[in-house]
Amino acid sequence: MLTGKQKRFLRSEAHHLDPIFQVGKGGVNEAMLVQIEEALEKRELVKISILQNNEDDKHEVAEKLAKGTKAELVQLIGHTVVLYKQSVNNKKIELPVKR
C-alpha cells in the first residue's frame, strides 16, 4: 500500500509519460493484462488511456487493471490511469521512505 507522499511522488514522475496502452471497446482482457504486467516489470510506472468508445465505468476499468496486474493504482485523472508496480529485476524508481 502506497502512502500519500509516495503517490504524489509517483504522480510527478508519471507526469511526462505518454500512455503506452489503450483500453477500447473490448474492455480489459487477459492478453492486455499480461502485456501491461510485462511493461510494469520493465518500467515500474505506466500510463494507460481509456478510449471514449469504452462502455465500462472508468473507475471499474482502473480497478480491473490494478487487480489484474497486481499493481498499485496511483491516479485516475480524466480517462488516464497511472499504475505502479515495483520491478523484481529492473528497479529504477526509489520511493520516498514510509514514516
Score class of each variant (00 low, 15 high):
residue 37 E to Y: 01
residue 41 E to T: 09
residue 34 V to P: 00
residue 32 M to A: 02
residue 34 V to D: 08
residue 28 V to W: 06
residue 16 H to C: 01
residue 22 Q to C: 14
residue 34 V to H: 14
residue 33 L to V: 08
residue 33 L to N: 11
residue 28 V to D: 03
residue 31 A to F: 12
residue 19 P to H: 05
residue 46 V to R: 10
residue 16 H to G: 02
residue 34 V to M: 07
residue 16 H to L: 11
residue 30 E to K: 10
residue 43 R to V: 03
residue 36 I to R: 09
residue 19 P to G: 06
residue 39 A to Q: 15
residue 32 M to C: 00
residue 29 N to S: 06
residue 45 L to V: 05
residue 49 S to Q: 08
residue 24 G to Q: 00
residue 29 N to K: 01
residue 27 G to M: 12
residue 23 V to M: 00
residue 28 V to S: 01
residue 31 A to R: 08
residue 36 I to N: 04
residue 26 G to W: 00
residue 44 E to T: 14
residue 44 E to P: 05
residue 46 V to N: 12
residue 27 G to L: 06
residue 23 V to P: 06
residue 43 R to W: 10
residue 11 R to L: 05
residue 40 L to T: 09
residue 17 L to M: 04
residue 11 R to E: 05
residue 38 E to C: 02
residue 27 G to Q: 10
residue 35 Q to G: 06
residue 44 E to R: 08
residue 28 V to E: 01
residue 14 A to C: 08
residue 49 S to H: 07
residue 15 H to V: 09
residue 43 R to D: 04
residue 47 K to S: 01
residue 43 R to E: 06
residue 25 K to T: 10
residue 24 G to C: 00
residue 43 R to M: 07
residue 45 L to I: 08
residue 18 D to Y: 13
residue 46 V to S: 05
residue 19 P to F: 09
residue 48 I to W: 08
residue 39 A to D: 05
residue 22 Q to N: 15
residue 16 H to N: 07
residue 41 E to I: 14
residue 38 E to G: 03
residue 35 Q to E: 05
residue 14 A to V: 06
residue 26 G to T: 12
residue 29 N to W: 13
residue 17 L to A: 05
residue 21 F to K: 10
residue 21 F to C: 09
residue 34 V to S: 03
residue 44 E to S: 13
residue 49 S to D: 01
residue 16 H to R: 09
residue 35 Q to A: 13
residue 18 D to F: 14
residue 47 K to D: 02
residue 42 K to I: 14
residue 16 H to I: 15
residue 26 G to H: 06
residue 34 V to K: 11
residue 36 I to D: 03
residue 24 G to F: 08
residue 34 V to C: 02
residue 34 V to R: 12
residue 28 V to C: 02
residue 23 V to G: 01
residue 16 H to E: 11
residue 18 D to A: 12
residue 22 Q to F: 15
residue 14 A to T: 02
residue 22 Q to T: 14
residue 31 A to V: 02
residue 14 A to I: 07
residue 28 V to H: 05
residue 34 V to A: 08
residue 38 E to H: 12
residue 27 G to N: 00
residue 43 R to L: 13
residue 47 K to M: 03
residue 37 E to S: 15
residue 44 E to K: 10
residue 42 K to V: 09
residue 40 L to H: 14
residue 29 N to P: 03
residue 22 Q to E: 14
residue 35 Q to H: 12
residue 13 E to W: 08
residue 49 S to M: 08
residue 36 I to L: 03
residue 16 H to S: 13
residue 28 V to K: 01
residue 13 E to L: 06
residue 39 A to V: 07
residue 13 E to G: 10
residue 20 I to H: 01
residue 23 V to R: 11
residue 31 A to Q: 11
